[in-house]
Amino acid sequence: MSARLDTGRPQRLGRGWLYLLPVLLFAAIGVVLALGLERDARTLPSVLIDKPAPEFALPPLPGRDDRGFTRADLNGQVALVNIFASWCVPCRIEHPVLEQLAREGVVVHAINYKDDPRDALAFLRTLGDPFARVGMDREGRAAIDWGVYGVPETFVIDREGRIRYRHVGPIQPRDLERTLRPLLAKLAQ
Protein backbone atom coordinates (compact mmCIF):
# COMPACT_ATOMS: atom_id res chain seq x y z
CA MET A 1 0.00 0.00 0.00
CA SER A 2 2.61 2.52 0.99
CA ALA A 3 5.24 1.94 -1.66
CA ARG A 4 5.62 5.65 -2.23
CA LEU A 5 5.89 6.40 1.48
CA ASP A 6 9.09 4.40 1.60
CA THR A 7 10.81 6.16 -1.29
CA GLY A 8 13.21 7.98 0.98
CA ARG A 9 14.67 4.84 2.46
CA PRO A 10 16.51 3.02 -0.34
CA GLN A 11 18.12 6.31 -1.32
CA ARG A 12 19.45 6.79 2.21
CA LEU A 13 20.81 3.26 2.28
CA GLY A 14 22.61 3.91 -1.01
CA ARG A 15 24.52 6.72 0.62
CA GLY A 16 25.39 4.58 3.62
CA TRP A 17 28.96 4.05 2.45
CA LEU A 18 29.56 7.75 3.13
CA TYR A 19 29.32 6.99 6.85
CA LEU A 20 32.20 4.53 6.41
CA LEU A 21 34.36 7.21 4.82
CA PRO A 22 35.72 8.67 8.09
CA VAL A 23 36.61 5.17 9.29
CA LEU A 24 38.42 4.41 6.03
CA LEU A 25 40.20 7.76 6.13
CA PHE A 26 41.25 7.12 9.72
CA ALA A 27 42.59 3.69 8.77
CA ALA A 28 44.53 5.14 5.81
CA ILE A 29 46.07 7.90 7.93
CA GLY A 30 46.88 5.32 10.62
CA VAL A 31 48.76 3.14 8.12
CA VAL A 32 50.73 6.12 6.79
CA LEU A 33 51.67 7.27 10.29
CA ALA A 34 52.61 3.74 11.36
CA LEU A 35 54.96 3.48 8.37
CA GLY A 36 56.35 6.91 9.26
CA LEU A 37 57.13 5.71 12.79
CA GLU A 38 59.22 2.89 11.37
CA ARG A 39 61.36 5.28 9.38
CA ASP A 40 64.04 7.40 10.99
CA ALA A 41 63.22 10.90 9.80
CA ARG A 42 66.70 12.11 10.67
CA THR A 43 68.37 9.74 8.22
CA LEU A 44 68.36 11.49 4.89
CA PRO A 45 68.61 9.45 1.72
CA SER A 46 71.73 10.30 -0.24
CA VAL A 47 71.24 11.75 -3.70
CA LEU A 48 74.69 10.47 -4.56
CA ILE A 49 73.71 6.79 -4.59
CA ASP A 50 74.85 5.14 -7.85
CA LYS A 51 76.69 8.32 -8.82
CA PRO A 52 80.47 8.58 -9.11
CA ALA A 53 82.20 9.63 -5.91
CA PRO A 54 83.02 13.35 -5.94
CA GLU A 55 86.45 14.66 -6.89
CA PHE A 56 88.71 15.40 -3.94
CA ALA A 57 92.41 15.49 -3.03
CA LEU A 58 93.11 15.57 0.68
CA PRO A 59 96.49 15.95 2.39
CA PRO A 60 97.80 13.19 4.67
CA LEU A 61 97.69 13.21 8.45
CA PRO A 62 101.16 14.39 9.54
CA GLY A 63 102.95 11.58 11.36
CA ARG A 64 101.02 8.80 9.60
CA ASP A 65 102.79 6.83 6.89
CA ASP A 66 100.52 7.93 4.08
CA ARG A 67 100.43 10.19 1.04
CA GLY A 68 96.92 11.48 1.55
CA PHE A 69 93.64 10.39 0.03
CA THR A 70 92.38 11.34 -3.42
CA ARG A 71 89.54 10.40 -5.75
CA ALA A 72 91.94 8.23 -7.79
CA ASP A 73 92.34 5.88 -4.81
CA LEU A 74 88.71 4.82 -5.26
CA ASN A 75 89.10 3.36 -8.74
CA GLY A 76 89.52 -0.36 -9.27
CA GLN A 77 88.49 -1.81 -5.91
CA VAL A 78 85.53 -2.08 -3.60
CA ALA A 79 86.13 0.11 -0.57
CA LEU A 80 84.52 1.82 2.38
CA VAL A 81 84.98 5.54 2.97
CA ASN A 82 84.47 6.48 6.60
CA ILE A 83 84.06 10.09 7.71
CA PHE A 84 85.38 10.38 11.27
CA ALA A 85 86.71 12.82 13.82
CA SER A 86 88.52 12.35 17.11
CA TRP A 87 85.97 14.62 18.82
CA CYS A 88 83.09 12.46 17.65
CA VAL A 89 81.95 10.06 20.37
CA PRO A 90 79.90 7.71 18.13
CA CYS A 91 83.04 7.31 15.98
CA ARG A 92 84.73 5.69 18.97
CA ILE A 93 81.81 3.28 19.34
CA GLU A 94 82.00 2.44 15.66
CA HIS A 95 85.77 2.01 15.50
CA PRO A 96 85.99 -1.72 16.48
CA VAL A 97 83.58 -2.53 13.63
CA LEU A 98 85.87 -0.81 11.11
CA GLU A 99 88.86 -2.66 12.56
CA GLN A 100 87.02 -5.94 12.27
CA LEU A 101 86.26 -5.24 8.58
CA ALA A 102 89.86 -4.24 7.88
CA ARG A 103 91.09 -7.49 9.50
CA GLU A 104 88.78 -9.39 7.15
CA GLY A 105 90.48 -7.72 4.19
CA VAL A 106 87.95 -4.98 3.40
CA VAL A 107 89.65 -1.79 2.18
CA VAL A 108 88.63 1.07 4.48
CA HIS A 109 89.63 4.65 3.71
CA ALA A 110 88.91 7.64 5.89
CA ILE A 111 88.20 11.32 5.66
CA ASN A 112 89.20 12.99 8.89
CA TYR A 113 86.57 15.69 9.39
CA LYS A 114 87.36 19.09 10.96
CA ASP A 115 89.94 17.69 13.31
CA ASP A 116 93.20 18.71 14.85
CA PRO A 117 95.76 16.40 13.15
CA ARG A 118 97.45 15.67 16.49
CA ASP A 119 94.14 14.60 18.04
CA ALA A 120 93.32 12.46 15.01
CA LEU A 121 96.72 10.75 15.19
CA ALA A 122 96.31 10.13 18.93
CA PHE A 123 92.83 8.68 18.22
CA LEU A 124 94.28 6.19 15.72
CA ARG A 125 97.27 5.32 17.97
CA THR A 126 95.00 4.62 20.93
CA LEU A 127 92.10 2.82 19.25
CA GLY A 128 93.92 1.23 16.32
CA ASP A 129 94.29 2.26 12.70
CA PRO A 130 92.17 0.22 10.28
CA PHE A 131 92.48 2.70 7.42
CA ALA A 132 94.30 2.23 4.13
CA ARG A 133 94.33 5.94 3.33
CA VAL A 134 93.41 8.90 5.48
CA GLY A 135 92.80 12.38 4.10
CA MET A 136 92.54 15.46 6.25
CA ASP A 137 89.48 17.63 5.61
CA ARG A 138 90.11 20.41 8.10
CA GLU A 139 87.57 22.82 6.62
CA GLY A 140 84.96 20.15 5.97
CA ARG A 141 84.69 21.09 2.31
CA ALA A 142 85.29 17.62 0.91
CA ALA A 143 82.63 16.27 3.27
CA ILE A 144 80.11 18.75 1.85
CA ASP A 145 80.87 17.42 -1.65
CA TRP A 146 79.98 13.98 -0.29
CA GLY A 147 76.69 15.34 1.10
CA VAL A 148 77.81 14.61 4.66
CA TYR A 149 75.76 16.29 7.39
CA GLY A 150 77.25 14.68 10.47
CA VAL A 151 79.93 12.27 11.63
CA PRO A 152 80.29 9.38 11.40
CA GLU A 153 79.06 8.52 7.95
CA THR A 154 80.27 5.62 5.85
CA PHE A 155 80.05 5.14 2.10
CA VAL A 156 80.41 1.93 0.12
CA ILE A 157 82.24 2.45 -3.17
CA ASP A 158 82.23 -0.09 -5.99
CA ARG A 159 85.05 -0.95 -8.42
CA GLU A 160 83.99 1.79 -10.83
CA GLY A 161 84.30 4.39 -8.09
CA ARG A 162 80.54 4.82 -7.70
CA ILE A 163 78.81 5.38 -4.37
CA ARG A 164 76.56 2.40 -3.74
CA TYR A 165 75.45 2.92 -0.17
CA ARG A 166 75.60 5.45 2.60
CA HIS A 167 75.35 4.68 6.28
CA VAL A 168 74.55 7.58 8.61
CA GLY A 169 75.74 7.29 12.20
CA PRO A 170 77.89 4.59 13.80
CA ILE A 171 77.83 1.19 12.13
CA GLN A 172 76.32 -1.23 14.63
CA PRO A 173 77.08 -4.96 14.46
CA ARG A 174 73.48 -5.40 13.28
CA ASP A 175 74.04 -3.04 10.30
CA LEU A 176 77.18 -4.99 9.47
CA GLU A 177 75.31 -8.27 9.19
CA ARG A 178 72.12 -6.98 7.62
CA THR A 179 73.38 -4.53 5.02
CA LEU A 180 77.12 -4.00 4.79
CA ARG A 181 78.39 -7.57 4.55
CA PRO A 182 75.79 -8.70 1.98
CA LEU A 183 76.46 -5.59 -0.12
CA LEU A 184 80.25 -6.00 0.06
CA ALA A 185 79.91 -9.67 -0.90
CA LYS A 186 77.70 -8.73 -3.87
CA LEU A 187 80.10 -6.03 -5.06
CA ALA A 188 83.13 -8.30 -4.69
CA GLN A 189 81.72 -10.84 -7.17
Binding site: L44, P45, S46, V47, L48, I144, D145, W146, G147, Y149
Partner: peptide, 8 residues
Protein backbone atom coordinates in the same frame (compact mmCIF):
# COMPACT_ATOMS: atom_id res chain seq x y z
CA UNK B 1 73.56 22.15 -2.95
CA UNK B 2 70.80 19.96 -4.39
CA UNK B 3 73.46 17.86 -6.16
CA UNK B 4 74.98 17.13 -2.76
CA UNK B 5 72.08 17.08 -0.33
CA UNK B 6 69.04 16.49 -2.53
CA UNK B 7 65.91 18.62 -2.80
CA UNK B 8 65.50 18.30 0.97
Amino acid sequence: LVERYGEF
